[in-house]
Nucleic acid binder design. Structure first.
Lengths: 224, 224
DNA sequence: TTTGGATTCAAACGTACATTTCAAACACCT
DNA sequence: AGGTGTTTGAAATGTACGTTTGAATCCAAA
């Protein structure tokens, strides 16, 4: 009984690190089982397939995160008043940082996994999250809508996905960026610092004045 | 002579589409040569290896784009005065759209390739671009610095990479996003429209007020 | 028309992968 | 202690990949 849990945990722990670092497709079961020090067949025995292992790795975090996010969103919605956009975005911070209780560096690993998932296996993770947690995310969209009533729905759609891209890419490149930042500015980079740098950027981007047609015509005045 | 060019072109054309759609690692030479209707060995004969094919695909666009960007950056720098940030960002638009003359849908394909390259093969493309075109990009950073003199260098570094993430992720997910947008808002989505939507978002994010330590403490007080 | 380098072709090579198999080892229950 | 269902182990299976090979074919210059 203990042994089974142990093997599953060892696989999950090894898998998440390799997945976060190298991506899902570029990490082999042999690398995972070798790092986890378990037999190659253990993955298929305990999880069925590589695909299901990927889901299990993500679910370990998503389950915890989404419950917490749902709480926060529901709380803000209950206030029955428009909330400041930065406030709305800031509710992500605590639930995300609490993922460190799921596992060491859980926040960083989860966000890296998210980045990998959205770019590696095109469309799959997007569908999975929307299918399982769409109701939670709808609350978030509603909150943003309330705090930016001037924003058309389609513009909001694009800007939220721009923001998703910002987060996801930043986290997928986290290691490289942190290295450069430490070399060029000798500043220590932890995941919380990056998140805090992200918030004002995202808030300003989402709430930016909307584009009007006259805009690009002005720009291209010196040519077509 | 004609035949050789023809085969190389056919390979490049087939490869770029598949790379953009499926990613570099998840596209096999067999898929490429099958779509191009050439022999499997042709890739290794004409390009040496898959890695060199990837570089050739990217270089076809990078060469054209970087020359044009360099022109624009140099022109703006010569003005000897701070330029509006939106103006600086807008200089990307024309050179990017001119990639459509390299190939049909060249702009979309190149940006998708860029997205794939920055996330698929971790660090490789970043190094390649920095190594070959670092001097061009430095001019861009200088321009942004001039238009946002209040921004510390390290903050600028992060925000430019946030922006890179926004662009790159948006383009890598372009197809999925366009589908959703058309289904939910029945709006036609072309690459130019996405770029024009991106500009105000990026400009606002980059120029956002800088984060201060007291900031999150204000937030938890329930309102600004 | 012959020649010789450039290109194409079918086939094979070696490697790595996810998954399966089945016997051995294990843990728990009576 | 003995039997049962669960877990582990080493090995094999079949598939797909990037690359290589060497003969066949093409094509322009002699």
């Amino acid at each position: 009984m203990v042994a089974k849990q142990n093997t599953q945990q060892k696989i999950l722990d090894a898998a998440q690190s390799l997945f976060a670092e190298t991506g899902f497709n570029d990490t082999s079961l042999r690398q995972i089982t070798s790092l986890a020090e378990v037999n190659l067949a253990a993955v298929n025995y305990h999880f069925g397939s590589k695909k299901e292992l990927i889901q299990a790795v993500l679910q370990r975090y998503l389950r915890v995160l989404m419950v917490r996010l749902d709480q926060e969103f529901t709380r803000l919605l209950a206030l029955q008043q428009p909330n400041n956009l930065t406030q709305v975005l800031a509710v992500f911070v605590k639930p995300l940082l609490e993922l460190n209780s799921v596992h060491n560096n859980g926040t960083r690993i989860f966000l890296q996994l998210l980045g990998r998932g959205y770019t590696d296996v095109q469309g799959h993770l997007r569908w999975f999250i929307n299918h399982n947690y769409g109701r939670v995310l709808d609350k978030f969209v509603l909150l943003v809508q309330q705090s930016c009533p001037q924003l058309p729905a389609s513009e909001l759609f694009w800007r939220l996905h721009f923001s998703l891209g910002t987060v996801v890419f930043t986290m997928a490149s986290n290691e490289a960026l942190a290295e450069i930042a430490e070399a060029d500015f000798s500043e220590e980079v932890d995941i919380e610092g990056v998140i805090q740098r992200l918030l004002p950027y995202l808030a300003a981007g989402i709430a930016a004045p909307v584009f009007t047609r006259s805009y690009p015509q002005q720009l291209s005045r010196s040519g077509t």
